[in-house]
Design a protein around this nucleic acid. Structure first.
Length: 109
DNA sequence: GGACTGACTCAAT
DNA sequence: TATTGAGCCAGTC
């Protein structure tokens, strides 16, 4: 790696950092914004290294608003608590009113 | 150099 | 209407 100054991961982190407080987005939205609409998996995979970054991975969920990646957090419901702390209502690993809280980088950036 | 993995998404059945 | 399968790209072993 390090072939390029900015790897695909870096781009994902950068976009994730642009997510406003109390807002959420989906992997596919970020992937599409980066030009890899069908690389949503890569976006999630990139989040594997987001823990060492200042990336609010808890604001990134799948297109259904489910906290699929919460298992990768320290606690079982840490991701959910983080979202709730920002005013996002989360029930059973699913974001409530996800459609209203959804933040599309392609439209906001 | 080839194969596998992965925090997803869409489409068909 | 709900469930299942296949596709996708980039990075790592």
């Amino acid at each position: 790696m390090q072939a390029k100054t900015e790897s695909f991961f870096e781009k994902v982190y950068e976009v994730a950092r642009q997510i406003p407080y109390g807002r959420v987005t989906s992997y596919g939205a970020i992937a599409k914004y980066l030009g890899a609409a069908r690389s949503a998996r890569m976006v999630g995979y990139a989040m594997n290294g987001s823990h060492n970054k200042d990336v609010p991975a808890h604001r990134v969920v799948n297109r259904k608003g489910l906290l699929t990646g919460k298992h990768h957090f320290e606690g079982t419901n840490l991701m959910q608590q983080l979202l709730e702390s920002e005013g996002v209502q989360v029930i059973d690993n699913q974001i409530q009113d996800f459609d209203s809280l959804f933040w599309d980088p392609a439209k906001n950036l």
